Amino acid sequence: MRIYISGPLQGSQNLPEARRFYEMLAASVRAAGCEAYVPHLATDPIESAHMSSERVFDTDLAALDSADAVIAHIGLPSTGVGAELAIAAASGRRILGLKRPGEPSSRFAEGLLLEADSTVITFRSAAELDDVVRRWLNQPRSWFGCPAALRFKQRAIA
């Protein structure tokens, strides 16, 4: 199973710490026997600053399209994470939303996840986070369903 790791980068107050957090999530995903896509490893806003917005979108959208589910840090505001959550929810992908106590997550985004039959968890430690991720990924494969393919090259004209 392939998991897309979503989380704020550009809005992060400590980019190296944010990168480490998403890489730690990916390690938990791999330890559970799944494959993880971590966007900043391909489209980092600093390391890949030369990439056009369209190329970043195409690269990450292709990874999201190949993912069976999404694990997202929703504790910090992020336009990109919100877009990824909306796309994932609309295509029927299960989403695990994660936040720390006191983080200012969007009530709209949390509502979206709950409406999409996904999960929102507040975690307090790295050990608890690892346990939550592993238990969530240990659901029967059928629970994750069969997400719809993403189609975005059909541009709408208003």
Rank of each mutant, 00 (worst) to 15 (best):
A83G: 11
M24S: 11
G75W: 06
C146K: 13
A158T: 13
Y37T: 05
R135S: 15
R30Q: 07
W143P: 00
N14E: 12
A83W: 11
I3T: 15
P147R: 10
A88T: 03
R151D: 10
L98Y: 01
E23A: 12
G102F: 02
R155K: 08
Q13V: 10
N138M: 12
S52A: 12
P101S: 11
M24I: 09
S12M: 06
L129P: 04
Y22P: 02
A89E: 00
L114F: 01
L98W: 03
L76P: 08
N14W: 08
A69C: 15
A90W: 12
A49K: 15
L150V: 05
F123G: 02
E128H: 06
G7P: 04
D44W: 00
R30D: 01
S28P: 10
T122P: 04
S118W: 00
H50R: 09
G111Q: 01
S66D: 15
S91K: 04
D44M: 01
L98H: 05
A31F: 11
P8L: 14
A62V: 14
A18P: 05
A83E: 13
S91V: 02
R20P: 05
D117I: 09
R135F: 15
A116S: 14
L129W: 01
R93M: 11
R134G: 05
A18K: 02
D58Q: 13
G33A: 05
L25K: 03
T59C: 07
P77T: 06
A31W: 08
F152D: 06
T122V: 14
R141K: 12
R55T: 13
Y22H: 03
L98V: 00
E17I: 07
Q139M: 04
G97H: 02
I5D: 09
E103K: 03
S48Y: 03
A31Y: 09
A31E: 14
G7V: 05
W136Q: 04
I74W: 02
A72S: 03
Y22C: 04
A149E: 14
E54F: 09
F21Y: 06
E47H: 10
E23I: 12
L137N: 06
R135Q: 15
Q10T: 14
G80H: 08
R134S: 09
H40N: 08
E17D: 12
L64G: 03
I3W: 09
S52L: 08
A26R: 00
P140R: 07
F144C: 05
A148K: 09
L113K: 07
P101L: 08
H40D: 06
P45T: 05
F108V: 14
L112E: 07
F108A: 13
V132K: 08
A67M: 03
R107T: 13
P39D: 00
L41K: 00
T79Y: 11
